[in-house]
Design a protein around this nucleic acid. Sequence first.
DNA 1: AGTAGGATAATCT
DNA 2: GATTATCCTACTG
Length: 216
Amino acid sequence: MGGDPGRALSTDALRLLLAGPVEEAARGLLGCTLTANGVTLRLTEVEAYDGTGRDAASHAHRGRTARNAVMFGPPGLAYVYFTYGMHWCLNVVCREEGIASAVLLRAGSIVDGIALARARRPGSTDRDLARGPARLTQALAITGADNGVDLFSDDSPVRLSPPATLDETPAAELVIHSGPRVGVAAEAERPWRFWLAGEPSVSAYRPRVLRRRPTA
DNA sequence: AGTAGGATAATCT
DNA sequence: GATTATCCTACTG
């Protein structure tokens, strides 16, 4: 024998899934583990974003720019972007190279390295440590320096793994709910946010507030 | 429990 | 110059 055939198979299956339709990739990412800088979490909430011309809410909808270039790369890369003047958010690049799409990692529950995560988010409850996309990157100390790294490479600072064994968390037994994406104005009707039922680490839904126009 | 407003800067028009 | 794939604090009930 040697090695761990079950796990290797599962990793290959995950790679294949990421290359396919992004909403299926998003579902497959739930329950996977993400490890960076001494902290590991189990993904409990994600959002799918399609590519150029297919999803008005996607960063790549209007084509390639300096910011979204990684989204056009091969599946399994990390797309990290900066928003609201202070927050980093992490995506998993999906679809074949040349076709942009990505899954935003919105929340997870810490399964290892919780002391480090607490130190990085002082004042947070354990439930809130990675509850929300910018909180998730804070807990794992992920920044723009990680943009473009290969999530499947052994020497990568950020790594993605399928559920530990198929016996422990069979995908068929995961109860997945879906609904509108958070904070998104365009394509508000597209139910491409996916989360695990009964998970306390799932972030609160916030419909985007329409900004009031300046007084006439 | 729920809601409102401010922080703060890259990105795109 | 407007918008933003957010978070935190403060306030109301």
